[in-house]
Computed example of a mutant assay.
Amino acid sequence: MHSAAKVWVVAKLLLSKFNVFSSLLIPFFMQGSHQACCSIKELDVFNRAHEIKVDPDKPLEGVRLAALQARKTLLVPTPRLRTGLFNKIVPPSGATKEILRICATSQGIKEYSVPVGLDAKARVDLVVVGSVAVSEKGWRIGKGEGYADMEYAMMVSMGAVQEDTPVITVVHDCQVVDIAEELLDDHDLTVDYILTPTRTIKTNCKRPKPQGIIWHKVNYEMLEKIPILKSLRYREKQTGKAVTLRDEHSDLADTNTPAALNEKAMAENTRPQTATGSAQIRQHYVENDSLNPRLEGSDVITTVYVGNIAPSIRVSELKCALREFHATPLRLNWQGAQHRAFLDYKDKATAECAVSSLKGLSLGGNTLRVELAKNQRNKGQVEINSQK
């Protein structure tokens, strides 16, 4: 039986590396799962840790419970990183053992968690990930989608983990197999400890873990799937780091690609027609406070609503981010006291491009809410001068 299981694991391992399956799962084993997870309590790296990141996979439920019972700060990645990076599990005051068990489940993660923003200064002492297969040398194969690897790289970029932050995986004994090192890439995460129902393996792995996000391996599709990547890319670019995407140059060279069309649409918004025209437009920004039907009509002007703006954010910071994400509007109506702003674009297509570009953007620790406006207009428009 174990031999057949190994064949199954190795088959999934190879299939995942070559993307034959698009939705592989971390295998869950009923027999021995509790023992494997509980053995983490015997590790010094667990007992010393204050803040632990544990993947939301079913096989790691026992680890999440152990962390909650030990009163550790427990961080769980959001599913497929769609809405952010982490959720912090916060059990109710005086939670019973049964409530803690619920908190450790997927349902508990939904009911008893709060999001953790990029500026939350998380300092993760221990990382626990699921695996499809792992070798005693510390080589790890996941589901083939790269989320655990990306999560770790993003934590490096955030300063949430250090070079010596230990990584643990929990698997069945049959998932411990020989893995050829040539199957690994430089973005693949390795592990320091392997917990099985019968063994605790210290890998002594010397292969370096990801040193951060490898931007030249990220494409536009990944940015859309993982919105928080946009914010991290913006932050790293502000510090002078190279953040060129894998398909950035080729996409912009092809005028038929969505990225190129987006760039073109945004550029047209900021291209002055004439010096006189620009002066007239600038005067119009200041004087036009009324809800002019021509401005509000979808045939000419479409407005984008930006909400959940952090109190610490100034209009100049929002302007800078809009330029950076190629989403410069014709006008910006800043309502900082209400933590919101309204952006006017020349048509609906351009506005939708802006919404797509700004989706998931985080400023001042808040993830912005960006959507087409629904008559949420007010007075007090402010011009964005793209030359400043």
Score class of each variant (00 low, 15 high):
52 I>E: 08
54 V>H: 09
57 D>N: 03
58 K>Y: 11
59 P>F: 04
59 P>K: 08
61 E>S: 13
62 G>S: 13
64 R>G: 09
64 R>K: 12
64 R>C: 06
64 R>W: 11
65 L>T: 05
67 A>I: 00
68 L>E: 15
69 Q>C: 12
71 R>Y: 03
72 K>A: 08
72 K>Q: 11
72 K>V: 01
72 K>T: 05
75 L>G: 10
77 P>R: 04
77 P>V: 00
80 R>E: 10
83 T>D: 15
83 T>W: 06
84 G>A: 02
86 F>A: 03
88 K>A: 07
92 P>H: 10
94 G>F: 13
95 A>R: 06
101 R>W: 01
103 C>I: 02
105 T>S: 15
108 G>A: 05
109 I>F: 06
110 K>L: 08
112 Y>Q: 06
112 Y>L: 00
115 P>H: 12
116 V>W: 08
116 V>K: 09
118 L>H: 15
120 A>V: 03
121 K>A: 14
122 A>D: 04
127 V>T: 04
127 V>Y: 11
129 V>F: 14
131 S>A: 13
133 A>L: 05
135 S>P: 03
136 E>V: 01
137 K>D: 07
137 K>F: 00
139 W>I: 02
143 K>Q: 01
144 G>N: 08
144 G>V: 02
145 E>A: 14
146 G>H: 08
146 G>Q: 05
146 G>A: 02
147 Y>T: 00
147 Y>N: 02
148 A>E: 12
149 D>Y: 09
150 M>F: 13
152 Y>K: 06
152 Y>T: 04
152 Y>P: 08
153 A>P: 05
153 A>R: 04
154 M>A: 14
154 M>N: 15
154 M>P: 14
155 M>Y: 10
156 V>A: 04
157 S>Q: 10
158 M>Y: 04
161 V>Y: 10
161 V>C: 14
164 D>R: 15
165 T>D: 14
166 P>Q: 06
169 T>C: 15
171 V>Q: 11
172 H>I: 00
173 D>A: 01
173 D>E: 09
